[in-house]
């Protein structure tokens, strides 16, 4: 009688350990294999944040978002996270998309002033009207991947 109870407790403990281990080591979201929660143009997502930052955070942040927009430039100044910049709102608003370093070659092959299609995790809007040197704003996406 004691043996089955002991085995049951052991199984429960093992199950709990495995659950905790898997939760602790769960991987980051794999953007490439995750279906986008929303597909939106660069200017539309910029407008959504500009109009109501708090509401846009609730709607878009932490989600994989597919975006298309005019590629203004590639910002490769930080080798740890090469980035591209899409037009969000003329010269005042941008969509800044960060990639893993292994995407560098693909980013180099992109042509400026063409439409870029990508998806990434939305982090929010950076920049602030209260900081006069940083008044231009970027909607930021991370862990981006290009969509063919």
């Amino acid at each position: 009688m004691k043996k089955p109870i002991f085995l049951l407790i052991l199984l429960i403990a093992l199950g709990a350990f495995l659950y905790a281990y898997r939760a602790y080591n769960k991987p980051h979201t794999d953007v490439a294999s995750t279906e986008a929660a929303e597909t939106i143009s660069a200017s539309a997502i910029f407008q959504a944040f500009e109009l109501d930052d708090s509401a846009a955070m609730v709607k878009y942040s932490d989600k994989v978002i597919a975006i298309h927009g005019l590629l203004l430039n590639r910002d490769l100044s930080n080798e740890k996270e090469p980035q591209i910049v899409l037009e969000g709102n003329g010269y005042d608003g941008f969509i800044r998309c960060g990639f893993k370093p292994e995407y560098l070659d693909k980013l180099l092959s992109l042509q400026d002033s063409t439409t870029a299609h990508l998806k990434g995790i939305c982090m929010g809007m950076n920049g602030s009207e209260e900081l006069d040197l940083l008044a231009d704003k970027d909607v930021v996406l991370s862990n981006c991947t290009l969509i063919d």
Partner: peptide, 16 residues
């Protein structure tokens, strides 16, 4: 001198 950083953009080795 000014800085602005998005909190969600801090990446940890572990997702949890």
């Amino acid at each position: 001198m000014q800085f602005s950083a998005l909190i969600k953009d801090f990446e940890f080795p572990k997702a949890l």
